[in-house]
Write a protein that binds this DNA or RNA. Structure first.
Lengths: 363, 363
DNA sequence: AGTCGTTTTTGGATGGGTCTAAATCTAGGC
DNA sequence: GCCTAGATTTAGACCCATCCAAAAACGACT
């Protein structure tokens, strides 16, 4: 037996792969026992546990999660699909996801659909082949609503994030965009604005619809029917173009709310281009409250949508769903908060530090 | 046999897991043959291939990459460790990595070390347990240089990105920061500046050292010895503080080069706070050329370090290394390019800037 | 018909864990 | 000293593909 031991150990050092079998031999127990020790089972006697642990250390064993996943049912991996990883908003969200997963020894695959349903589809299939335990999906624009049902058939838990498609009993984590826009409208009305425009997306997903809904209902609530709005793309350029179109109208708005911060930055540049000053000649409010809001000039008032926190919630929800695949579906919806800065004309803080926001937005 | 077939198929629909065995039975061939078809082996006869493919489609088979990885040696996965995923620079880099990997059917785990060597260590160990084929590592600040040797012992290919530690024969992809800073100095000298300051990191990694090196050597090359510089943190706040300290000196600099764009944005805000106009009272140059450079006011002149391209190169290098683990180590180093905008005072493009100035001086 | 070289196909071992049911060991009770 | 419930440990099947050596099929050529 000692000889057998030696041989094993020699093998191990040669190709660097020590297995349960090797540990078992070294510690003088069975493979099963070692497996139990590794999984911290309470069934193992303390003395045995220590003996095995010592062998594990001595041989430099590395757990093989792939092999474990093959027999067991969990891979301890998650798939994350976003549609624009270069967007700082998603950077923050991914950081939130990462923070939660690490605590649970999970790792996540990250892929970027670039808002292409076809790419998204390929990724999902690849994730499936890798047997991820769940998917966090920010659906690409134009995603077929039936996708969610398909994933269900695949028995692949899917948490939708920020946007959602398909029929309601689904898992979702996001922000209440409707309420966010409403807050922006309310604030602007308080400041005396009446002609408030909204520029936002034309695509049909939940996140767009919710914003429009918030805008229309808030305006109506204040008895302001003469809404003016524009359905555009979601880029900085779109904001730049849209604001100029709005200003060219016979009675231009005195304030504008934008679908996201990128568009708001574009709108501010557009105003400057026209010789106008954002926050004075026309108030501008963005959405997301990305880090850069504080360093634009004027600093941008924005509806904070807490990407880091959304990421955390989504990840937590995913872990709950993995633990209990048939549990009731959950929607975790965070409340946005209007972050008032200079661009809405409310005030102009004197010091940089006062309107600097912490690097990590956490509720 | 037909009965056996039926049973198999029933199993399949029940728990959604069709295996090679099922396909083999359905197509009337052996498991081995099916495996060959899946891997597009030229050994299989065309007729057989088609028959098998039909069965695969009919039964809705899903390839099990985990099982394949257990026997074979490749997992088709990569680990990516960055130190600040919320930073837009890394967002772009990750997008570049993702783009290359997808073409090769690879997926990557992404984790965020937050510049903590301990977290980084944990991640690397987890990646090892998942048997990733290679690691793309942006080493956290304070990483022990021996880490690279350790990874080598683990036989885990590691491509360092942007920063590097350890002894030279290693794989690396990054940008030539030294040359970047040199370009910035040269440009500023051409514009007539003599008192050029540099504010940058104090930590000891390659990326910091290279920048200092570039600064000192370029200054010396122009016969400008009276260098003034500050070693600070790398945040916006650090830039904000540093510029004010510099301006308080008896003979303040007329231009300042910053370690990254975040600091440059901070520095510009700092100048405004002092009632000065960036690009007029003091030139400011950043590094990285993140997207937001164009929308600051004034727009920021910056040394473009091409994060997307760096990500692509790193991923490609990783794939080469996986294919040939013992090949010669490579260093892929991209040349930066100075992106001249308004903040260095060289010119003020007509488009956005004409009206921007009055706006800033309003404080 | 027999031989030979290709081209295809295949059985069975293998990778490294987990799972289940059964075996073995305790200590306490009589 | 024997019996039993409870605590530990274990053997062996299993997960699902890949690998290798060997078998089978095929066609061409003596």
């Amino acid at each position: 037996m000692a000889k057998d031991n030696d041989k094993r150990q020699a093998d191990a050092t040669r190709d660097g792969s020590v297995t349960l079998q090797d540990i078992a031999a070294h510690a003088g127990v069975s493979r099963s026992t070692v497996s139990l020790v590794l999984r911290e089972s309470p069934l193992v006697a303390e003395r045995t546990r220590q003996k095995v642990q010592a062998s594990i250390k001595a041989l430099g064993y590395v757990y093989n999660r792939g092999a474990a996943a093959l027999r067991g049912s969990r891979t301890q991996t998650l798939g994350v699909v976003v549609y624009d990883i270069a967007n700082p908003f998603f950077g923050a969200m991914v950081a939130g996801i990462d923070a939660v997963l690490n605590r649970q020894n999970y790792v996540s695959f990250l892929t970027n659909s670039e808002d292409s349903p076809a790419r998204q589809q390929r990724f999902l299939e690849r994730m499936r082949e890798h047997r991820v335990d769940a998917i966090l999906l920010c659906p690409a624009e134009g995603t077929d609503p039936r996708l969610i049902a398909t994933l269900q058939e695949w028995r692949l838990p899917c948490i939708q994030v920020l946007r959602h498609v398909g029929q309601p009993p689904f898992d979702y984590a996001g922000t209440d965009f409707e309420q966010g826009v409403r807050q922006a409208v309310d604030h602007l009305v308080t400041l005396g604005h009446r002609r408030i425009a909204f520029i936002g997306g034309q695509a049909e997903h939940s996140a767009t619809r919710a914003r429009w809904q918030g805008y229309f209902s808030a305006m109506a609530g204040h008895g302001l029917d003469q809404t003016c709005c524009l359905r555009t793309g979601l880029t900085r350029q779109a904001g730049f173009d849209a604001i100029q179109a709005l200003m060219a109208e016979s009675s231009p708005p005195t304030a504008v709310i934008c679908h996201n911060d990128l568009m708001a930055f574009g709108a501010m540049l557009g105003l400057k281009r026209l010789g106008m000053t954002p926050g004075i000649d026309c108030a501008v409010v963005g959405t997301d409250d990305v880090e850069e809001t504080a360093l634009s000039d004027p600093s941008l008032t924005s509806v904070a949508t807490h990407p880091y926190a959304v990421g955390e919630e989504a990840a937590r929800l995913a872990l709950r769903r993995i633990a209990n695949p048939d549990g009731a579906r959950e929607q975790v919806i965070l409340s946005p908060r209007l972050q008032v800065r200079e661009s809405c004309g409310a005030h102009r803080p004197a010091a940089f530090s006062r309107h600097a926001k912490p690097l990590v937005t956490q509720d």
